[in-house]
Amino acid sequence: MQISLDNFSRVMKYVPLFGRGLVVTVLLSLVTVLLGFVLAFILAMMSLSSVKILRAISTVYVQIVRCTPMMVQVLIMYYLLTGLIPFPRVFLFGYIEVGRFIPAAISLALNSGGYMSDVIRGGIEGIDQGQTEAARSLGMTKGQTMRYIIIPQAIKNILPSFANEFVTIIKESSVCSVIGVAEITKQAQNVQSATFISLEPLFVATFLYFCLCFPTSRIIAYFERRMRASDQR
């Protein structure tokens, strides 16, 4: 094994491939976080519901997501979805294969939504009970109280966690390489196959992940600090 500048310069010929991988990773993570948020919100509402069966469904779902490996979830969703829906061989931008991207996004979102539902529930439960009492005493319904009083306050607690979840998903989305989604990790593997160089492509991938995650988490931390400061207005 050797790491050499020569290897790097050969790998660098494939920069456009890594570039595409980068785009796929970012898109996949964005779609996942948005879908995941919707799912997490629904799951959180179910777990806070007074209907027992909704609570049970939500609990069971979250536990299944937490207690099974993500790679297995991704594989299952891929075979399940491609088996059920005959995806046409359509390529977005010419290189994002829809039939792989969609199952990947859905399975990542199903996973992330399960994890994040607890964060949303916690954010909602963290709002002082007195807020609900004040709203209800003014004649607001349960739904109005949630919508106008509780959720706007809870969002503030929840948003930083979701931004952090975005960073987590950027990294975890590498698991989608197993179903052939051409994101960063998969492209690194492609370059390995094309050049018979094993390490350097992975270094490039590492560098790209770091360049995505490090600034993003710094930006989030900055906004978190600012939001906390505005609380002490």
């Binding site: 002082d128 007195g130 807020q131 009492e133 004040a134 709203a135 209800r136 005493s137 003014l138 004649g139 607001m140 319904t141 106008y148 009083i149 706007p152 306050q153 503030k156």
Partner: peptide, 29 residues
């Protein structure tokens, strides 16, 4: 909810809505 409209309530810990201005606190209901 209809009946609660007839009964105003004031709490020990005020329970104002912190994300709304004073005027919004008064007018939201």
């Amino acid at each position: 909810d209809k009946f609660r409209q007839k009964m105003g309530m004031v709490f020990q810990h005020f329970n104002l809505f912190p994300h709304k201005t004073i005027l919004e606190n008064l007018t939201i209901a």
